[in-house]
């Protein structure tokens, strides 16, 4: 039996006002996901993303607002930079940079959320299990 892919989603509360709905949407396509709410996607630091991967997640995803709607003006833009910075570490380590990703969702917009779930599902299909998973959790 294949291990269930594990995705951790760090989501801005404005972009994803109902995290339970996102979790259900992930479950409906057969994914076990954990949703962590953030006051803004810019609250997510590069080291958070790396730490979550080190804990064994196969994929870490950040959801922010479209740049023009970010309440903190440039928070969503910064989030993109931080994901890219963490991806540089993965490349240096020889891990797939695609284990980190982000999308921008307009205040709970159902189409945007559905597109995010589809993208997460597609990424996880392509990725092998996280080779940096701690031994005891394999």
């Amino acid at each position: 039996m294949q291990p269930i892919p594990e995705v951790v989603v760090l989501a801005c509360t404005q972009a994803v006002p109902q995290p339970a709905a996102l979790r259900q949407a992930l479950q409906q396509v057969g994914l076990s996901g954990r949703i962590i709410q953030e006051p803004c996607s810019s609250k997510v630091e590069s080291f958070h993303l790396l730490r979550i991967l080190a804990q064994g997640a196969d994929l870490v995803w950040v959801v922010g607002c479209p740049e023009q709607y970010c309440q903190l003006a440039e928070g969503s833009t910064r989030m993109g930079f931080r994901v890219a910075h963490a991806q540089d570490y993965l490349t240096e380590l020889g891990l797939e940079a695609e284990r980190l990703g982000y999308s921008r969702v307009a205040a709970g917009n159902p189409e945007d959320l559905a597109a995010t779930v589809a993208e997460i599902q597609q990424r996880l299909r392509k990725l092998p299990p996280n080779p940096a998973r701690p031994r005891q959790t394999v």
Partner: peptide, 10 residues
């Protein structure tokens, strides 16, 4: 620290 943890675990 997180990157080295990943490296050692790999």
């Amino acid at each position: 620290a997180a990157a080295l943890k990943l490296a050692f675990q790999m």
